[in-house]
């Protein structure tokens, strides 16, 4: 088994049977932000994915202790 990383994951929509989901997530070293998103297979599209509070490119590698937040994209009128 390869090296594992622990990240904090926050999903601001129904996920894993909850109205929203927050917790620590173990991922394989070398996992990218985009790879994580694909693996989660979320039920909605066109979401905002933030790494440590910023939009980052999907090919960026995740690091120990990172925070990934997945939210609905919207704006005020």
């Amino acid at each position: 088994m390869g090296e594992r990383l622990s990240i904090r994951l926050e999903v601001y929509l129904p996920f894993r049977g909850r109205r929203m989901w927050r917790g620590l997530e173990e991922v394989a070293a070398g996992t990218t932000l985009g790879g994580l998103l694909t693996g989660l297979a979320l039920p909605e599209s066109d979401l905002a994915t933030l790494l440590n509070g910023r939009y980052r490119p999907p090919d960026i590698l995740l690091a120990e202790g990172d925070e990934v937040a997945i939210l609905r994209q919207s704006e005020g009128g």
């Binding site: 926050e10 909605e44 599209s45 905002a48 939210l71 994209q73 919207s74 704006e75 005020g76 009128g77």
Partner: peptide, 23 residues
């Protein structure tokens, strides 16, 4: 459009969690 569908469920209010998370 998925983003338009979202407005029907959550209005503009979901922008709050996004902007809060952005800091």
């Amino acid at each position: 459009s998925p983003s338009i569908a979202r407005y029907r469920s959550y209005g503009t209010a979901s922008t709050l969690e996004l902007v809060n998370k952005l800091g």
